[in-house]
């Protein structure tokens, strides 16, 4: 069993009428089976409303399954006695950095989590230092978070989660509100954490360029997992991705269109280098 495993996971939102009485349900996650290996970098793709955020919220017991089971580090999240272990294993980072930062100084913000769980002070400082180092924000430790750029704030939010020493970080569209620079910073930081610290990363996004280096990709639509595989395998099915309201990177799209027009290119070309290689080979062919 992987660090996160779900079996036949179902979640129904309860609709309420104006007086707050239950008035039907809407199924947001439908019969989801996933198994995420410890130390891997996994991406979950899907359009707005496909159920990806609802699924993510199950990974640290912010939501509990309506039916089915999800285990985090082998612990069933629906059991009360597992709650703290689950939350300590999987940390969450959300879309809007401004909603996640509470400290008035960067290092205080990062220390907030460990302080709350009663970590001794010297150990808190050690963690703050290591976490800021890991996200490349050490030089801003004495700054006020509100003077930072969006990308920097998001990195502080990640450091705050890192200070809890989770084995797994779930990031729910962490770059949606950032500019291209901020987006790069955050993605680079996440990859680095995955590689250097062996933290399991679960990245929820609809930016396709961000998932190219993932080990495994799940695509969600209408609450279900509809595609999965390596980025290469998933992006090779360009037409199917489009039917789920998603896009492929421009280089993949261009290769796909050229292939449709008759050029014998491979499926699922993900990088400019691979594309240029194939085109030049064709071009130089006598």
């Amino acid at each position: 069993m992987g660090i996160i495993k779900a079996s036949k996971l179902i979640y129904d939102y309860i609709k309420r009428d104006e007086d707050g009485n239950p008035d039907g349900t809407r199924r947001a996650v439908d019969q989801v089976d996933i198994d995420i290996e410890a130390g891997s970098f996994v991406a979950i793709l899907g359009h707005n409303g496909s159920g990806k955020s609802t699924l993510a919220k199950h990974m640290n017991a912010l939501l509990l399954p309506t039916e089915g089971t999800i285990w985090v580090s082998g612990k069933d999240t629906s059991l009360d006695e597992n709650l703290w272990d689950v939350r300590r294993t999987a940390g969450m980072v959300f879309q809007n950095p401004d909603n996640q930062i509470i400290g008035t100084v960067v290092e205080e913000d990062v220390g907030f989590g460990p302080e709350n769980i009663g970590v001794p002070t010297p150990e808190i400082w050690k963690r703050v230092e290591q976490s800021l180092e890991a996200v490349g924000m050490t030089m801003y430790r004495h700054h006020s978070p509100n003077k930072l750029s969006g990308g920097q704030k998001q990195r502080v939010a990640i450091a705050g989660v890192m200070a809890m020493r989770p084995r797994c970080i779930v990031l729910d569209e962490p770059t949606a509100m950032l500019d291209p620079n901020g987006r790069k910073e955050v993605i680079r930081t996440i990859r680095e954490l995955n590689r250097a610290e062996q933290i399991t990363v679960i990245l929820i996004t609809h930016y396709m360029e961000e998932v190219i280096e993932a080990d495994h990709v799940y695509v969600m639509d209408d609450g279900r997992i509809v595609m999965e595989g390596t980025p290469h395998e998933v992006f090779a099915r360009t037409e199917e991705l489009k039917s789920y309201r998603l896009d492929v990177p421009q280089v993949t799209e261009l290769s796909w269109q050229l292939k449709k027009a008759g050029l014998p290119l491979s499926d699922g070309i993900l990088t400019i280098d691979a594309f240029v290689d194939e085109i030049m080979t064709l071009y130089k062919k006598p």
């Binding site: 500019d179 291209p180 620079n181 360029e209 990177p249 421009q250 280089v251 799209e253 261009l254 269109q257 400019i272 280098d273 594309f275 240029v276 085109i279 030049m280 071009y283």
Partner: peptide
């Protein structure tokens, strides 16, 4: 200044560098 051109522009420039005959002002797929 922290921006970039569309990915397709980079594809075109990479092709051109390899000697592929293509105009360098292409910006759309």
């Amino acid at each position: 200044i922290g921006l970039a051109a569309p990915q397709v522009t980079y594809i075109i420039h990479a092709l051109k560098e390899q000697g592929f005959p293509i105009a360098d002002d292409i910006t759309t797929i």
